[in-house]
């Protein structure tokens, strides 16, 4: 299906790999019994630049629900964040968001 982008410009969707088209991707952090809550908050603040309040809310989701979607967006950026979170030894994975399934 063509996508109208400007009044006189029509761009046809072309077959592309999932890597290029399947946004959004989710960065998901799972709970674990090792990482301290304050540390998780600190990591979320540093990696994503979140406020302390937002980082704390996400940490609580991780702790109470077992996981939290801490960021959503393009795949390459999501991969970058997962790498950073894993480097901080959090249990972080990539997951296809609903629109990317």
């Amino acid at each position: 299906m063509p996508v109208q982008t400007q009044p006189e410009t029509t761009v046809l969707e072309s077959p592309q790999s999932a890597r290029e088209t399947s946004a959004p991707w989710e960065v998901v952090v799972h709970d674990d019994p090792v990482n301290y809550m304050h540390y998780v908050v600190l990591v979320f603040q540093r990696v994503f630049g979140y406020s302390k309040e937002r980082a704390t809310r996400l940490m609580r989701e991780v702790h109470e629900l077992g996981e939290s979607v801490v960021w959503t967006g393009a795949r390459e950026r999501a991969e970058h964040y997962v790498r950073q979170l894993q480097g901080c030894q959090l249990r972080a994975i990539l997951r296809r968001g609903e629109a990317g399934s």
Binding site: S17, A18, D32, E79, Q89, R91, I93, L94, R95
Partner: peptide, 21 residues
């Protein structure tokens, strides 16, 4: 130390992209 980018629930035998990642 968890270093799987996708988690256990993603089965790479049915998801070529997962295998590649």
């Amino acid at each position: 130390v968890a270093l799987d980018p996708l988690g256990k629930e993603v089965d790479e035998t049915t998801d070529y992209d997962a295998a590649s990642l």
